[in-house]
């Protein structure tokens, strides 16, 4: 557990909560990233700008961290086929399942939605099983 970073994790998590609260009180929406982004493809007339601004913000926030925060080493595992398959499954799965880690895992859990609690339990368990199989059984990540 030498990489255990509870303080930055908790502070980062709290910031995510603050962002979700700010978005709900101002714009009246839940900050679910897969929903916000997927509706840009294809874009719907009159419903695009705020989505692009939100996406720009996600990138801007990370740029700000890069400028002022403590750097850390980023690790990617698996080659391009793993990233392609992972991306495809993530895109398809979050659309069919109606949300991702932010929409179900944060906003939905905060609303005590039984759908979101179920979805979160399922994607956490499947992600855990996948890492176990891919890393310790097959050895591809």
């Amino acid at each position: 557990m030498e990489n255990f970073t509870p303080v930055s994790a908790l502070l980062g998590g709290a910031l995510i909560g603050v962002a979700a609260a700010m978005f709900l009180v101002m714009n009246g929406r839940l900050a679910g990233v897969s929903g916000i982004v997927s509706r840009l493809f294809p874009p719907a007339k009159g419903d695009t700008d705020w989505r692009l601004f939100f996406v720009g913000g996600l990138i801007l926030g990370t740029l700000v961290y890069q400028a002022v925060g403590t750097p850390y080493e980023i690790g990617y595992s698996g080659g391009w086929p793993i990233l392609v398959i992972g991306g495809l499954w993530t895109g398809i799965g979050t659309r069919i399942g109606g949300g991702c880690t932010s929409g179900h895992g944060v906003c939905g859990m905060a609303r005590m939605s039984s759908r979101s609690i179920t979805a979160t339990a399922i994607f956490m368990v499947f992600a855990g099983i996948t890492v176990f199989l891919a890393r310790h059984v097959v050895g591809v990540i």
Binding site: G13, I16, A19, N27, V33, L58, L60, G61, Y65, G69
Partner: peptide, 10 residues
């Protein structure tokens, strides 16, 4: 909101 969210993620 996106920026604060992104900062938290990073």
């Amino acid at each position: 909101a996106g920026s604060v969210f992104g900062l938290g993620l990073a």
